[in-house]
Structures are given as structure tokens and as C-alpha cells.
Design a protein around this nucleic acid. Structure first.
Length: 946
DNA sequence: GATGTCACG
DNA sequence: GACGTACGTGACATCA
């Protein structure tokens, strides 16, 4: 029986616009811009790879727009009239798209007077009618009208968004439009489309459009129903703009009966001849693809297609993500090449290889995830691609019945490895090496010097991920992205859930494959990514800030901080008692028992049963019961709301702090050891987990009690030093605002100064408003956001923003310049050169784009602040040691604050040193126009140190 | 696993 | 005009 035919229709024109905006401005050896062409080529490559797959194409054609004029312009001259002309460096790429298509020996269809959408629609319907399956390669929402399931005699039609690697079929359409494909046109006609200049109904967006069609079943029915609606803006608009909607319906309809310029059978795929493709790749300098082609085809006279024998790799996907460095030539991963080291002679041979290699990857395998509790189970090393080994040290130890495999004694092995691991001339590469540093430090091995592929990736690509692709810096992700290889996963080896076994019980052959592969992959990633630092300008931040910070933070984690278990326990009990009392009162007011902690149940009690006013929200259809809402209800006199608020606060404090922190005390050290992530925050800040010690309560009196449970060891005190208003100071410097700079130089109250500038006088009210506005500026302002915060109308908020910009003109310029630069380059930068990428800064989705804009305004400020405190952290211990204060311990970092533990008698000596290191941390790389103010306090607990 | 909520800078 | 309109995080409880 013949296989079912599957036609792929590639929406080429739409694709190149997206590729153009997503890719860096590459040029070929002749200087012709080819960024979009490159993206297009890699996409065709990926499609060609799927040739033999179940869902892959048997037939394929590329459809292009021939001209900007179509029959729609005859109906409606304004159609697509507000489109800007394509960018200058995109224009010359249009003809190259056809070249690329031809290079793959694919058919290219375009017709005068017809848009690509119409040709796609006509081919799709025709193919489905003769029972072919159809996949439209596009993400254009107009084309979603065509999607259908198919049946015995009709093929199915779906879509594929190659950039998001997402199939779009009925469920996705339902998610997006809330209706079936045959009604998508009706929804589109109501909402209009600003890009194509389709009017729709003024004031109706996607939400409203969907709702109307869902309720009434069709556009006509919805428009007819307007007359009977209760009086509203919407009603007026539906009636007034009825003609617009009807015109829009015609414009969004796809013409499904065009003459087909070429027979579908001609689209048959028979492999891709190598020669023309190679010539094309060569001409435009797409070397990584060219190499793949060579590798895949073996000898040129043998295989002559691009079949999955050698898939185009994620190296190419990586390139399409903007990583311009080609993958260095490395042999494919071969797990059978790894060696399991079970005797001293073999280990000594590997040690010699490490000494010769000078650059080695190291990975430790342990019994747990927590580096402060985990026991060492084995170590793997890699010295070159496929040259890797695993040294088991504690396998079979926990399962008494199993025979313990032969392995070198742990102490003997560490003694032999120590010279390598501590040798200044041998670079140790790790993926998240802070973990290995902490584990090995507990066995008295201080590993140095180190490089970290996770942090290198962060320096290069922070923020670069997109929904569905993943932009993380984990090893598996990096390996797939840069090496085109999926390493064995931990769960492949150890299982998952109840069946999970400790790594020490994994058989040695399997353990060797897994562990040595991790070291091998890490080594390769380093080889691939490290050179990019210099090329892409990441060296300074990586070498001067993040890399030296790794051992510093590792040391802080190992120090941990003492918490007073008894004090936490007392608080827990106190909270529990008060919660129980509140619970009774709340149930009494509700006249029934329910789960107060369930927002769903609480919402139903408050709004359905008790009848308070408040709206539903979101797609989940749940009532909002958050703090703001409950406070509103409390103002209306709802005592139950006040009680729920108090209950919530206690519940939060108890579960997240007083209970959890007791459980987090390490039984061996008696202290709490957080884990800091150096790649957790896109802006360059650290984040803290397990437990998070960066969000210990301080803002309320009751929460503050928890801080007092963080205590100094006997005879010591805690010293807290924080930067005062650092982000506002940086904003004053970066935006060059004279009056703010003067105020900081003079040590004035900055919010008061702002109030004076804005309102002419400083009162409690104007100062509070000024403070809100100052923060709004840092976070990327919008009139609605400010209005919401200040409780004023948007107009009034806008007037305040205007006033602010007038008084502090540099701010407006800073915002404009920052956005302009991010739109052009794709990333923002801190004063020290740290990049954060914003792939959605030019998104057509307004909410998404504006969200990116706000984040992009904030990132340089928040990121510079992070750079500064990190520089201070790197310099801190050397400076203290210099002053014979090497025994002072730096314990915590909370974004703008450092916490130390030291003998009470040393406080006065340490203060000026800590202050100076922090205040001077930007120098000499950057000289700020504003002083960095430091506030220092000390006491026997963290609360008292503030 | 997603969602809602809330702790911090 | 929508987006319950601010930036950056992590943890917990509930519920499907």
C-alpha cells in the first residue's frame, strides 16, 4: 500500500521577515547581508531532514508573495497601506531566498496579484481534497482558518512554526482564538489587524472578539445581536462600525480556489542533490552547514541527499540563534571510548594525561543534590573529545547484598588527584563547578583555577531563550544547542520517582558512560564557547567579575549562617495558635468551614456566598483574592477580609520561614547553607535557593522577628553593610541628571529632593509620591502603572511623568537611547559590559513587546548594581586579609547588602575596610559621577545589625 | 505541573 | 486598545 502523501507548504515571505528580525546582521564574504537568508536556509535544512520521518514531507513547495498589490487592494485601497518599506539590508536578500530554494532543488511558487496566503490556501484545500495531509510552515494567524482534522477521504491540515518548533492544530487554534478554524475569520474580522491595516471594530481586541463569536456563533449573528445588547460602548461600536467588520471579513477570507500554477505531483521530494547546495553554501560562507553537508554525504558519488543519516545539527540551530562561531571540528561523541578507572596504575596514566593536556574537564558524582550533604561517589575527567574516564570511588556501598566492585580507595584516589586539581597550571573546567568545589572542599581539596561553562554561557547568552526553545544554561540544553547531542540524562541512568537509585548503585559500565560523557561534553562546550567571549565582548565581565566570584560564593555557601532553632520554634507555635483562632472566626463569619488557603474556595465564599463585589479574572475564571483585593474589601467593612489577610501573613511566615528554616539546618554544621545561583537572574543578579535567604522578612514588625533568629556564633556579631539607594544613584549617573547627582553628592534625601523639583514643596504626601515615581522610572514607567500605584487617573499620572521628564531631562533621553540600542543590537549592557538579550523587543505582540521594553530599561541599572556588589565581593577577603582580618567571614549577599560574621572586638577595624571596598567597587573600570553610600550596622542578630 | 499568592531587593 | 500594566527573583499551598 502506498504511503500517504504529505505536502508541506512553506510560507517563505513571512518567514524571512521573522528571520530578519531574529538574527544578527550577518554578511557573506562579499559583504551582502545574509542574516535572513541564513535563517531561511537552516529552516529548509531542518525540513529536509524530516523527509523520512512519520510526520515529514513527501512533497514540498515554497510559496512567496510576488508583489504588494493584490485583489484586496482593489476592494480596499488602504489594505496593508501602513506597512513600512522593508529595511534596506533586507531588500537584497529577497532574490537570494529564491536562490536558496533552488539550491535545495525545491519548487518556488509565486503569482502576480495573489498573496502567498491565497496560494497556500488553494493548494492546501486541493491537496486535502485528494486525501493528502498538509502542513503549512508558517505562524500566520490568518492561515489558521485552514486547519482541519481530516477524515477517511480528506487529508488533515495543520501548521508548523519552525521558530518555536511547534505544531499548530485544532487545540492550538482553540487556545488562541477560542473557536474552531471556520470561525477564526469571524474573530479576525472583529478584532482587525493593525499590521495589515484591517479595520475590524474600533475598540474590540482579541478577547472581546472571541467572546462575541463564542456567544453568538458567527460574525453576522454578533452584529445582529448588537441592537438588543444593553447600553454600552461596545454596543455603540458594533452598530456604528458594522460596515468595517463586514469589509474586514472579506479581507481576511482566504481565496481558496486560485488556479494552481504548478501541479502538486511536481513537488515530490527525491532527496536533495548535493552539488548546487554546496555551491550555494560556499558562495555565502555558510561554513558550518557546508561541513555538515560534507559529513553527511560521505563520498560525493554515494549518498546524494540530506537524509537523517547525519542530521543537520543543533550546531546549526545554535547558529540560527545567533552564535556565529562555528563548532570546532570534533569527532562525534562515542561513549564506548570512555574508560573506567579501577586501579592506581590506570589512574596514574590519566593523571599524566591531565598534566599534558593542561585544560581538563572535571565532574563529580555524588549521593545527593545538596553540595553540603552529598558524599563523593566518583570523579570523571576529560582531556580531549572522547578522551574521558570515570573513577568510581564509592560504588556499591549502600546495597549490602550487591558485590562491591573493584575501585580505588577514596582517600588514595584523592591524594593522587590533588596535585592535578590544585595545580595552577592546569585549568579545571566544570559545568556549575561551584557544586564540585564545595563537595571537594569538604574532602580538603581546594580546586583551582577553574572555568565554568554554565557561567560562560550566561555571559554570552543571558536572556536569549525563547518560549519553546529554551534559553537555559544547563548542560543538556547547552549540549543540544551547541553540539547537537543529547547526553544521557540522570534519569536514564538512575531512574525516577520511587524506582530511583543512588548513583553509587549504578553498574560501573553504565556509570562510566554517563559520568565520563558529562566531562566530555563539558570539555567540548568549553572549546566551543570560550572563544566566543572575546569575539562577542564577554571577556571582561566573565574574567573580572563572574569567574573570580565562583570560589568566593562557594566559600560563603560553606560558611552558612547560624539560626536559633528554639526561637523559630517558638514563633511557629505562636503563629499556629493565632492562626487557629483566626480560622475559627473566619469560618464563623462565612458560616461554614472551608480551606482558607485555597484562593478558589475563598473567592467563592467572598463573592458568591457573601456577595461582596469583585470581578472574575484570567482564563482560569477564578476570582482574584490577592492582597490588593482583600484590602479593598476590608475598606468596605468586610472584617472577614482583614482576618484572612492576617491569617495569610501568618501562614506565609510559618510555612516559608519559621518551619522551613528549622528543617534547613544542616545536621553536621548546625547552620543553614543556601545555594546561590550565578546564572539565575537575567540581569546578572545572584539568586538564592534551598533555602532562599534573600527574601527573609523585614518590612513588617511581625516578619522582622524572623530576622532576629539569624544569629552570630558565640562571641561574634553579625555586620550588615548595604548600598544606599544604589539603583537611583546609578540612574542619576547613567542618565546624567545634574540635579539628582548634586543631591546625592550633597547627601540629601533623594525622594525629598525629587518632591521639591516636582511639586515645589516637600510634604509627607509629595515625598511619598516622588518615591513612587522614582521607582517607577527604574522599572520602566507606564502611565497606567503609575496611576494604579498612586490611585490617580492615567491622565494625571501622565502629567506627572511629563513633569518628571521636564525636571530631569536626562531620564527621558536615557530611556529612548536604551530602547533604540536594544532594538538594534538585541541586547542591553551594563556599565561593565554585561549583556542581557531581549529577543522579544521587536515583537508584534504589544504586551510582550512593552514588557520587554520595561525590562530593557531596568536591566542596565539592576545589572550594573549587581556588577558592582560582585566586584566588591571578589575584593573583600583579600582586603580584609591584608588588614589581618582574614578570619572575618562573609556569609550572605542580598542584592545590595553583604552580611559578615566576626568577633565583636574586630567590628571597628573591619567597618572602614568593608565600607571602602564597597564604595570603590566600580573603580577603576568605571568612575561614577555619584558617590556610593554605604550603611553599616552590627549586632548579635541580623535584625539588630540593621 | 500549573496557578495564585507573597516574601525580598 | 489590550495587558487586571512597574523590574528582578524563589517557595509554598492547592488543585487538576
Amino acid at each position: 500500500m502506498a504511503e500517504k502523501q504529505h505536502l508541506y507548504l512553506v510560507d517563505g515571505s513571512a518567514y524571512i521577515f521573522r528571520a530578519y528580525h531574529r538574527l544578527p546582521p550577518l554578511t557573506d564574504p562579499e559583504g551582502t547581508p545574509v542574516g535572513a537568508v541564513y535563517g531561511y536556509t537552516t529552516m529548509l535544512w531542518k525540513l529536509a531532514e524530516d523527509l523520512d520521518k512519520a510526520e515529514g514531507p513527501t512533497h514540498l513547495a515554497v510559496i512567496l508573495d510576488k508583489s504588494s498589490h493584490s485583489f484586496r487592494n482593489d476592494i480596499y485601497p488602504e489594505y496593508k497601506a501602513n506597512r513600512p518599506p522593508p529595511p534596506d539590508d533586507l531588500v537584497p536578500q529577497f532574490p537570494l531566498i529564491r536562490d536558496a530554494t533552488r539550491a535545495f532543488s525545491l519548487s518556488c511558487i509565486e503569482e502576480q496579484g495573489l498573496e502567498a496566503d491565497d496560494l497556500i490556501a488553494s493548494y492546501a484545500r486541493a491537496a486535502a481534497a485528494q486525501n493528502w495531509d498538509v502542513t503549512i510552515v508558517s505562524s500566520d494567524k490568518d492561515l489558521m482558518q485552514l486547519i482541519s482534522e481530516g477524515d477517511d477521504s480528506r487529508g488533515r491540515i495543520d501548521m508548523l512554526d519552525t521558530m518555536k518548533n511547534q505544531r499548530i492544530s485544532l487545540p492550538e487554534v482553540a487556545d488562541k482564538f477560542g473557536v474552531t478554524p471556520d470561525l477564526v475569520g469571524d474573530v479576525l474580522a472583529l478584532m482587525g489587524d493593525s499590521v495589515d491595516n484591517i479595520p475590524g471594530i474600533f475598540g474590540v481586541g482579541p478577547k472581546t472578539a472571541t467572546k462575541l463569536i463564542q456567544e453568538h456563533g458567527s460574525l453576522t449573528a454578533a452584529l445582529d445581536a448588537a441592537a438588543d445588547m444593553k447600553k454600552s460602548k461596545l454596543k455603540e461600536r458594533l452598530i456604528e462600525h458594522r460596515a468595517d467588520a463586514e469589509l474586514s471579513r472579506i479581507l481576511v477570507a482566504l481565496k481558496e480556489d486560485c488556479d494552481l500554477p504548478m501541479a502538486m505531483d511536481d513537488f515530490k521530494l527525491d532527496g536533495v542533490p548535493v552539488e548546487p547546495l554546496a555551491a550555494f553554501l560556499q558562495k555565502h560562507g555558510f561554513t558550518s552547514l557546508l561541513r555538515r553537508l560534507d559529513a553527511g554525504s560521505g563520498s560525493p558519488d554515494r549518498a546524494n541527499d540530506l537524509n537523517p543519516a547525519k542530521p543537520a545539527t543543533a550546531a546549526d540551530v545554535g547558529d540560527s540563534e545567533g552564535n556565529r562561531q562555528a563548532v570546532p571540528d570534533m569527532p562525534a561523541i562515542d561513549r564506548s571510548a570512555y574508560e573506567c578507572v579501577q586501579d592506581m596504575d590506570t589512574l596514574n596514566r590519566w593523571i599524566a594525561r591531565c598534566e599534558a593536556a593542561r585544560v581538563i574537564a572535571v565532574d563529580t558524582e555524588t549521593s545527593a543534590l545538596d553540595s553540603m550533604q552529598a558524599d563523593l561517589v566518583g570523579i570523571s575527567l576529560a582531556v580531549a573529545p572522547n578522551e574521558a574516564c570515570y573513577i568510581p570511588l564509592a560504588h556499591g556501598g549502600t546495597d549490602l547484598l550487591a558485590e562491591t566492585p573493584q575501585q580505588i580507595g577514596l582517600q588514595d584516589a584523592l591524594a593522587a588527584l590533588r596535585p592535578v586539581l590544585t595545580n595552577d597550571a592546569i585549568l579545571k573546567i566544570g559545568q556549575n563547578i561551584k557544586y564540585d568545589l564545595n563537595v571537594l572542599a569538604r574532602y580538603d581539596v581546594d580546586v583551582t583555577p577553574v572555568d565554568d561553562t554554565m557561567i560562560i554561557s550566561f555571559a554570552l547568552d543571558a536572556g536569549r531563550g525563547e518560549a519553546g526553545i529554551g534559553g537555559g544554561h544547563g548542560m543538556d540544553e547547552l549540549s543540544v544547542r551547541h553540539l547537537g547531542h543529547s547526553p544521557l540524562s540522570f534519569k536514564d541512568v538512575c531512574g525516577t520517582g520511587k524506582k530511583q537509585i543512588p548513583f553509587g548503585e549504578v553498574p560501573l559500565d553504565r556509570a562510566t558512560e554517563y559520568a565520563a560523557e558529562d566531562a566530555d561534553v563539558t570539555w567540548r562546550l568549553h572549546k566551543h564557547m570560550k572563544p566566543r567571549l572575546a569575539i562577542e565582548g564577554g571577556t571582561t565581565v566573565y574574567e573580572r567579575v563572574d569567574r573570580p566570584l565562583v570560589p568566593v560564593v562557594a566559600q560563603m555557601e560553606r560558611h552558612g549562617i547560624k539560626v536559633d532553632r528554639a526561637a523559630l520554634s517558638r514563633l511557629s507555635e505562636e503563629f499556629a495558635t493565632r492562626m487557629a483562632a483566626l480560622e475559627g472566626e473566619i469560618h464563623g463569619e462565612a458560616d461554614q468551614e472551608f480551606t482558607i488557603g485555597s484562593p478558589k474556595q475563598l473567592g467563592e465564599i467572598l463573592f458568591d456566598k457573601m456577595g461582596y463585589k469583585g470581578g472574575r479574572k484570567g482564563k482560569s475564571g477564578q476570582y482574584s483574592t490577592d492582597q490588593a483585593m482583600l484590602e479593598k474589601l476590608a475598606e468596605q467593612g468586610a472584617t472577614i477580609a482583614t482576618k484572612v489577610l492576617e491569617w495569610r501573613q501568618l501562614s506565609k511566615l510559618k510555612s516559608t520561614y519559621t518551619d522551613a528554616l528549622q528543617a534547613a539546618i544542616n545536621p553536621k554544621t548546625g547552620r543553614v547553607h543556601t545555594s546561590y545561583s550565578l546564572t539565575g537572574a537575567q540581569t546578572g543578579r545572584l539568586s538564592s535557593t534551598d533555602p532562599n535567604l534573600q527574601n527573609i522578612p523585614i518590612r513588617t514588625e511581625i516578619g522582622r522577628q524572623i530576622r532576629t533568629a539569624f544569629v552570630a556564633d558565640t562571641g561574634n556579631v553579625l555586620l550588615a553593610a548595604d548600598y544606599s539607594q544604589i539603583e537611583l544613584r546609578l540612574a542619576a549617573h547613567m542618565a546624567d541628571v545634574p540635579s539628582l547627582k548634586e543631591a546625592f553628592a550633597a547627601g540629601e534625601d533623594i525622594h525629598a529632593r525629587t518632591a521639591k523639583e516636582m511639586y515645589g514643596e516637600v510634604t509627607r504626601d509629595t515625598r511619598a509620591q516622588a518615591k513612587t515615581i522614582n521607582f517607577a522610572i527604574l522599572y520602566g514607567i507606564s502611565r497606567w502603572g503609575l496611576a494604579g500605584r498612586l490611585g490617580v487617573e492615567a491622565d494625571e499620572a501622565q502629567a506627572m511623568i511629563d513633569r518628571y521628564f521636564e525636571r530631569f531631562p536626562g531620564i527621558q533621553r536615557y530611556i529612548a537611547e536604551t530602547l533604540e540600542s536594544v532594538r538594534e543590537l538585541g541586547y542591553s549592557q551594563t556599565l561593565f559590559g554585561r549583556k542581557t538579550w531581549f529577543p522579544r523587543i521587536n515583537s508584534k505582540n504589544g504586551a510582550e513587546r512593552q514588557g520587554s521594553e520595561r525590562a530593557a530599561i531596568n536591566a542596565p541599572i539592576q545589572g550594573t548594581s549587581a556588577d558592582i556588589i560582585k566586584r566588591a565581593m571578589v575584593r573583600m577577603m583579600p582586603a580584609l586579609t591584608e588588614a589581618d582580618l582574614g578570619h572575618v567571614r562573609m556569609l550572605l549577599q542580598v542584592h545590595d547588602e553583604l552580611v559578615f560574621e566576626l568577633p565583636e572586638g574586630d567590628v571597628e577595624a573591619a567597618k572602614p575596610i568593608i565600607e571602602k571596598v564597597m564604595a570603590d567597587a566600580a573603580m577603576p573600570a568605571v568612575t561614577l559621577d555619584v558617590p556610593l553610600g554605604i550603611e553599616i550596622g552590627s549586632g548579635t542578630d541580623w535584625g539588630a545589625a540593621h
